[in-house]
Write a protein that binds this DNA or RNA. Sequence first.
DNA 1: TCAAAAGTGTTCATGGTACACCCATGA
DNA 2: TCATGGGTGTACCATGAACACTTTTGA
Lengths: 257, 257
Amino acid sequence: MQPTSDLPSPRPENLAKYLPHLSIDCCVFGFHENQLKILLIQWQSITPWSLPGGFILPNESVDAAAKRILQERTSLKDIYLEQFKIFGEVNRTNSPENRKYILDSDLPASSKDWLLQRTISLGYYALIDFSKAMPTTAPLIQDCRWWDIQEVPLLIHDHPQILQQARRALQLHLLNKPLGYNLLPEKFTMTELRRLYEIILDKSIDRRNFEKKMLKLGILDRLEEVKTNVSYKAPLLYKFNQAKYQELLEADFGLGF
Amino acid sequence: MQPTSDLPSPRPENLAKYLPHLSIDCCVFGFHENQLKILLIQWQSITPWSLPGGFILPNESVDAAAKRILQERTSLKDIYLEQFKIFGEVNRTNSPENRKYILDSDLPASSKDWLLQRTISLGYYALIDFSKAMPTTAPLIQDCRWWDIQEVPLLIHDHPQILQQARRALQLHLLNKPLGYNLLPEKFTMTELRRLYEIILDKSIDRRNFEKKMLKLGILDRLEEVKTNVSYKAPLLYKFNQAKYQELLEADFGLGF
DNA sequence: TCAAAAGTGTTCATGGTACACCCATGA
DNA sequence: TCATGGGTGTACCATGAACACTTTTGA
């Protein structure tokens, strides 16, 4: 499940080709077995884990860079992305530990200098279908895998704060727009959707009231199918009604749980 | 009302001291005579108007840069600022008109080159007390003044889109957090507060229901005073209850009009 | 005295919340 | 047969929306 990427990926000697002082960090959320998951990478075995990220090419829009970076890590095209905050403190990557990691690395001196510059991070969150993503390493990336949101390891820099802000942004998203299309498989049960809401909001939601509310929103189509191979009454399957979902996504205002 | 600034301001020969490829653009909102106002500047008499903006120093956080830039334009410290979006299209400032403005300007060649680079803009909105702000020009800024939000002139680059997004962010702010402390004078009437909400949401709100709702939120203290010198029944004055206001601001969720 | 806006309460409709029983399935 | 979660409806409460008359003030 962690093949080395055969997509183009940053080459050590080449960091100076990117726009200086800027990076993109992505909080990639997935949903699996009733757990909210986050994709993390590890640059080297001795460094703490970090959010997947990368840099911006001179002739590439910021959104396109974020998309490219995530495509390299997941093999997915068409990722749902939202830019949620800038992390622009002067010394956010300037810890002694980080300097040491960089200086001790195999990178050429020019790339070391480049990485040691003050860096402003553009924070994105991404919502993706866990089952379709292929966590993918690269020459500079030793490991890339999903973590339970409750069990994230030590993270470098200010990545703990970035993740925290992303979770807050995700909550705000949920309260203002529909959510789920990007995180769930095409067909899902009402309970799976509810669990997703519960885990993002970190509170339990009444089963019947949730169903009433979601159905009233009109973004769900009930299928003629049920989920089988469960050791209890076969639950109905739903899918999202694209048109209505999109409409509410753009309206932006006034859901709320 | 438009004194030339005696604060430090960008000097033409010096643009290269800023971080390259990055700018900050601010949508500064004020409220006056029942109108939402926005502060705009004009670099030269022939250029379109633009949002006040500036650049980031190497040893300055992004938020601090935004604060400094706005302090230069308004003489205000302690401005309420929110970063709301990044504008990162490759050619967003690369129009023939803009190239011409830059090349025809009095700037030294090095600064012209610097300005012609591809620039990513970090979008902020600011909420300020109209009556306390002093729109302030500078050597490079020919004019700086308030405009009615309904009558903004032609704007350069993608500033129309930035403004539009800022207004949307402001609406979202209003629906999720208390708003008004930064835009209104210390003492204000319920109607002034309501007009502010109406103009931001672009819809009318029932006078009695609005009052009930605001009072129930608990963020207002009714004063023993009334507003005088009006040719109608003297309205009661209110001020914000700091503690409660701050609490709701941090809670972030669940107002809504 | 007139124009303009202030102050104030009730009714109605809607939406939210709380809650319990029987059913289907695989183990 | 049992454990597990699925499917469903109602009653109550809170909130939001609609709405009108009298009062005060300066012009």
